[in-house]
């Protein structure tokens, strides 16, 4: 993934009331992100730098073109900005990684870890609508835009790899291994797809089903509030992993332990 073209500081302090290049950059990225998030007709592939400047209250695009050579350069940086800011769940990686590193013995039971770590991945209300807008807008725009698709792909690979690393660490910490042919990247892809899908659905209309379900995951556990995403992630984790060394020779491959017929 390419990096922003410039983080260079302004060479001298700007006169009072004038923005530094960094301030202008931040302003135009924030304004572009807001437009992408709130206007259905504006996607990253089509956002117009002149419109962004106008919306941001700049009278000309001159200062914008001091930062970005072309509109495409702006769109590319906006994409990275949006992906960095809005992809939900990044906090969860940091949170869980820190918990594992701190004291593996103090980790909560796995269901509790999944319940709490996924609890905030689907945003509610306005935030949900923003995530929804940005996500769907990005993916849809990339269907028609090869350059955007490549960026999105690279970004997605980075995200999936980061999560796969986390899930391997979690499996290790909890004495689990992946059931062949599944692995951490597969699990990460499934969880990401489910998160995206629920973001879309819940962002569009959140009252299709209850936002949280009160359940206990096994007879010995306490009742707790579970999001539908958390229920799904736990189901996937159960199906795709097993206690380390539990695979028996000649076992029949199968993900689930219920389902007669």
């Amino acid at each position: 993934m390419s990096t922003p073209t410039s983080d260079r500081p302004a060479r001298r302090s700007p006169p009072i009331g004038r923005r530094s290049i960094d301030d202008t950059r931040a302003l135009l990225l924030a304004t572009g992100a807001e437009m992408v998030a709130t206007e259905s007709a504006v996607t990253i592939g089509r956002v117009d730098l002149l419109d962004v400047c106008r919306r941001a209250g700049l009278s000309t695009v001159g200062s914008a073109y001091k930062i970005w050579d072309t509109q495409d350069d702006y769109r590319l940086e906006l994409l990275h900005h949006v992906l960095g800011e809005f992809i939900p769940g990044r906090d969860a990686i940091d949170l869980v990684t820190a918990a594992i590193a701190d004291d593996p013995d103090a980790l909560p039971p796995l269901p509790e870890l999944i319940r709490t770590a996924t609890g905030t991945a689907i945003a509610d209300g306005d935030d949900g609508a923003r995530h929804f807008s940005i996500y769907v807008g990005l993916w849809l725009a990339s269907v028609d835009d090869a350059a955007l698709a490549r960026e999105l792909h690279d970004s997605d690979v980075t995200v999936i790899d980061a999560y796969a690393g986390l899930y391997d660490a979690v499996a290790e910490a909890y004495g689990l291994e992946w059931k062949p042919p599944f692995d951490a990247r597969f699990f990460a892809t499934m969880v990401a797809a489910m998160t995206d899908g629920l973001t879309v659905r819940m962002g569009a209309h959140g009252d299709l089903v209850e936002r949280t379900l009160v359940r206990r995951v096994d007879d010995g556990s306490e009742e707790a509030e579970w999001s539908l995403l958390a229920c799904g992630v736990y189901a996937l984790a159960r199906a795709f992993s097993r206690p380390r060394g539990a695979g028996a020779p000649g076992e029949r491959d199968g993900g689930h332990d219920a389902g007669g017929g």
């Binding site: 993916w139 698709a149 690979v157 499934m190 797809a193 489910m194 899908g197 879309v200 659905r201 229920c231």
Partner: peptide, 27 residues
């Protein structure tokens, strides 16, 4: 059944979005 329906719709839409934009991700 509705919880399963919402979860499965979300999963297939999520996979579909990804595979449509970047088929290599879904594999």
């Amino acid at each position: 059944g509705r919880h399963l329906a919402v979860s499965l719709s979300a999963l297939i839409e999520g996979l579909d979005l990804r595979s449509r934009a970047t088929p290599a991700i879904v594999g």
